[in-house]
Design a protein around this nucleic acid. Structure first.
Length: 471
RNA sequence: GGCGCGGUACCCAAGUGGCUAAGGGAGAGGUCUGCAAAACCUCGAUUCGCCGGUUCGAAUCCGGCCCGCGCCUCCA
């Protein structure tokens, strides 16, 4: 049984999809006004783990991730640069997809863009007006919170106790109640304007998610994810719009991940602790898979403290997994297989699956993997592992890649360029001739190229220790 | 002030009433090795933010306190 912590109830609940075997998933994507940072990717990584685990568990998953390409910040950015909205957001959208690819985050089925779904939003706003849940004021349209008694259920905010913050005072739009939020914004100097049957203007922020989730997933659907900072107001408002419009529930399970901080502090450009994928991978030469393991291995409901030490630790863990596979693939084992290993794999699988099934408790799952590695390493050391065992264990570990996404390419998919291969052979010759200084010199050259040599009693073997990043 | 997360070894982190408090990293010593790498073995928290309480028994339950973090109207 799979269980998730549902923000709606605040408790761990058994996960039961609306349609057996199928999961409809909506995750809040980027607002493309700037380059995404590793904190943003932490959320996408959590969602990737969730989706991969659901698929691994046998569900068919339909995943929708929105791209917010019209809002205050994108408009401001485009105006500042003197270009159109589309021209302004295009490079950020491209960079976002590149970041996903570098981190091996599986693509969503659809990436709907807000600007391409204005008619869907208009239809909902029109419906809300007709029901009297929305009202017009100075060309804008607002959602009337007083008409939605359930408001605050997700964030557990009591409206009467909401403390006004500075932002309310600076709001440029007139509303009946400060808690009402904009569905549609009246045309303003410099804003893009859509001519629609509810009048000219542009959409508010929250309406796109209500409109696009309904279009691609229906209502209700199973799981909606995002960062904790989206709980209020964004997700609360989505619920209000969608449920008031359709008269039925919006989402069954809300899953939210916590933030990523850097060295114990919030990441911000002014502090200089603001990292993007290219910063780490291209500029600093970080293995993207180490970053992936780091992001994925901290439980999603805990704050992730990003440090370079933690990144090194993740890289070390990754190395242990890779070296283990390398061992299984490059050693000569005696023929046969043992029931002991078959049993060990059954136990490992049970523990691994159980961990993730319990609200994505990945620590348990990784422990299961590392325990398998340690036990099999002992057997290798004692010459008790047979060829069939090695194949079975390696196949199992690779199968986990469906969930973890960190494994190296399989043996057939990796090779050394001819020049490096020649160096490996040259070193072997030197070593046989006991010219160790030449042998060590070549070893160093190979190391600089990211290739590590290991001398075993069965001869030399090489492994690639750096995954080339990005481009 | 409200709502929500968290505080377990040098670092990351599991464990929510009971066998010796998982696992990974780093460190120290050892085996192996031309050197190295990997692997293996050994060592490492009498103790879980603090103080009380409940209990035969508490990291785990209850009460109080301290500390860190997030959200509180367009932030993942």
């Amino acid at each position: 049984m799979i269980r998730f912590t549902n923000t709606l109830s605040g408790a761990k609940e058994p996960f039961v999809p609306l349609v057996p075997g199928e999961v409809k998933l909506y995750t809040c994507g980027p607002t493309v006004y700037d380059e995404a940072h590793i904190g943003n990717y932490r959320a996408y990584m959590f969602e990737d783990l969730l989706k991969r685990f659901l698929k691994y568990s046998g569900f068919r998953v339909t995943h929708v991730m929105n791209i917010t390409d019209v809002d205050d910040k994108t408009i401001r950015g485009a105006n500042a640069k003197g270009v159109g909205l589309e021209e302004y957001t295009a490079p950020f959208i491209r960079a976002f997809h590149e970041g996903l690819a570098v981190l091996r985050i599986e693509p969503a089925d659809v990436y709907p863009r807000a600007t391409a779904h204005i008619p869907d939003m208009v239809r909902i706003i029109k419906g809300l007006l007709e029901k009297g849940v929305a009202y017009r004021k100075d060309g804008s349209i607002y959602f009337k919170i007083s008409r939605f008694p359930d408001y605050g259920r997700l964030s557990k905010f009591d409206l009467s106790e909401l403390r006004p913050s500075g932002r309310i005072e600076s709001d440029e739009y007139e509303k009946e109640s400060i808690q009402d939020f904009a569905l549609w914004k009246a045309p303003k100097e410099g804003d893009p304007v859509w001519e629609t049957e509810i009048g000219p203007g542009r959409p508010g922020w929250h309406i796109e998610c209500s409109a696009m989730s309904a279009r691609y997933l229906g209502q209700p659907f199973d799981i909606h994810c995002g960062g904790v900072d989206n709980i209020f107001p964004h997700h609360e408002n989505e619920i209000a719009q969608s449920e008031a419009f359709a008269g039925r529930p919006f989402v069954n399970y809300w899953l939210h991940c916590h933030h990523l901080i850097v060295d114990g502090e919030k990441m911000s450009k002014s502090k200089g602790n603001f990292y993007t994928i290219p910063d780490l991978v291209q500029t600093r030469g970080i293995d993207p898979m180490a970053l992936r393991l780091l992001l994925v291995s901290t439980h999603y409901r805990k704050v992730l403290n990003f440090t370079f030490e933690a990144l090194d630790q993740a890289a070390a863990g990754l190395r242990r997994i890779r070296d283990f596979l390398f061992e299984l693939e490059t050693r000569a084992f005696p023929a046969g297989s043992s029931p002991e290993i078959a049993l060990l794999l059954v136990d490992t699988r049970a523990k691994f699956d159980e961990g993730l099934a319990d609200d994505l408790n990945i620590s348990i799952s990784l422990t299961a993997l590392f325990e398998l590695i340690r036990r099999v390493n002992v057997l290798i050391k004692e010459d008790r592992l047979a060829a069939g065992d090695a194949i079975a264990v390696a196949a199992y570990v690779y199968s986990l890649d469906g969930v973890l996404g960190i494994m190296p390419p399989r043996p057939g998919e990796r090779d050394l360029p001819a020049e490096l291969r020649a160096k490996v052979e040259a070193r072997e010759k030197a070593r046989k001739a006991r010219d160790f200084s030449l042998a060590d010199k070549i070893r160093k050259e190979l190391a600089a190229a990211g290739v590590v040599l290991e001398d075993t009693k069965d001869g030399v073997r090489w492994k690639i220790v750096r995954t080339s990043g990005g481009s």
